[in-house]
């Protein structure tokens, strides 16, 4: 039962994380390969503040806000870039964030990480036990789903898709491509921050090693496997992949296998990503109105 609750909580948090990446990658066509940075900023901001005694309601808002602000700042230079360059710029940004977490020992305790993060208390409700935390995580996931669903179905969502499919054409029609991409990027960063906050207060211990390229790949795989540019895709992807990943942990395999199983599992993730791109780039759920084979 605890396993099922744990799985549901992690799936809910990763659904938020994946939904936030999908608005960038799936709807706007921004190749964000450093999405974990915003997850990390949310997690560390909220964790550090609550460890100083700041109430959760404020630290959560700070975590989300910092992640969004970071998105805005990094967006100014990098959103001028086209496709691949934006990918490398965000990849580099994620590396810098990890370096800061590791090296600024005075702020972040460095590689030792932050133990003893408290479970949250919101409006005199305590979310301490697993079922209580599930309520919080699910509530946040549903809220995210509704907000992102509303945004992507609105005219704004159609502008994003137009920019993705042909930026020049969208610009000729009078859409400010840079501003729209920036909005999409900041919204994605805000929700990634929310996922990070929820993650830190659930796991109660975070360290720089939790926020590497591995997490970016996992969340990218969730989006791509589920179906990028669809509303349900990231949720489906999160259910499938988190179930696969977390159930491995509960198989009680001998500990000496872990040095082999870890890389092996990551290799499988990388391989699935490559195979999906070659054989079914649209993922499990296909975006409406897209041809079966999407060619440029």
């Amino acid at each position: 039962m605890d396993l099922l609750l744990h799985l549901s909580i992690v799936i809910a948090i990763y659904s938020i994380f994946a939904l936030s990446l999908n608005i960038e990658v799936g709807y706007t066509g921004l190749f964000n390969f450093g999405h974990v940075a915003f997850f990390a900023i949310g997690a560390y901001t909220s964790a550090l503040l609550t460890l100083q005694g700041v109430p959760f309601s404020l630290s959560m808002i700070a975590g989300i806000g910092f992640a969004g602000a970071a998105g805005f700042l990094i967006g100014i230079p990098s959103l001028k870039l086209q496709g691949d360059y934006f990918g490398i710029a965000t990849l580099g940004f994620a590396e810098i964030v990890r370096m800061i977490l590791q090296n600024q020992v005075a702020w972040t305790k460095g590689p030792m990480g932050l133990p003893g993060i408290t479970r949250p208390e919101l409006f005199s409700w305590r979310f301490d036990t697993l079922p209580e935390y599930l309520v919080l995580a699910l509530g946040a996931a549903i809220l995210t789903f509704l907000v992102i669903g509303f945004l992507t179905l609105s005219p704004f969502g159609r502008v994003l898709k137009a920019i993705r499919d042909d930026e020049t054409a969208a610009a000729i029609l009078g859409k400010n491509a840079f501003a729209c991409k920036m909005k999409s990027f900041v919204i994605g960063s805000l929700f990634a921050g929310l996922a990070g906050v929820l993650w830190a207060h659930y796991i109660t211990f975070i360290s720089p090693g939790d926020f590497t390229l591995t997490e970016t790949i996992l969340v990218l795989l969730i989006v791509v496997l589920g179906g990028k540019g669809t509303l349900l895709g990231p949720v489906v992807g999160a259910v499938v992949l988190i179930f696969f990943q977390e159930s491995l942990r509960f198989l009680r395999l001998p500990p000496e296998w872990s040095s082999i199983l870890g890389p092996l599992q990551q290799m499988v993730f990388g391989l699935i990503l490559v195979l999906l791109m070659i054989f079914r780039p649209e993922g499990l759920i296909r975006e409406k109105g897209k041809e079966k084979i999407d060619r440029d």
Partner: peptide
């Protein structure tokens, strides 16, 4: 080669997946 005609996003995701695969293979 199978992705020669594919769009950029597909190509880039395949490249980053491949990079991740090779990196973890080395670690293995």
């Amino acid at each position: 080669r199978p992705l020669r005609q594919a769009n950029r996003l597909t190509l880039l995701i395949a490249a980053i997946g491949l990079s991740f695969f090779l990196r973890n293979a080395a670690q293995l």
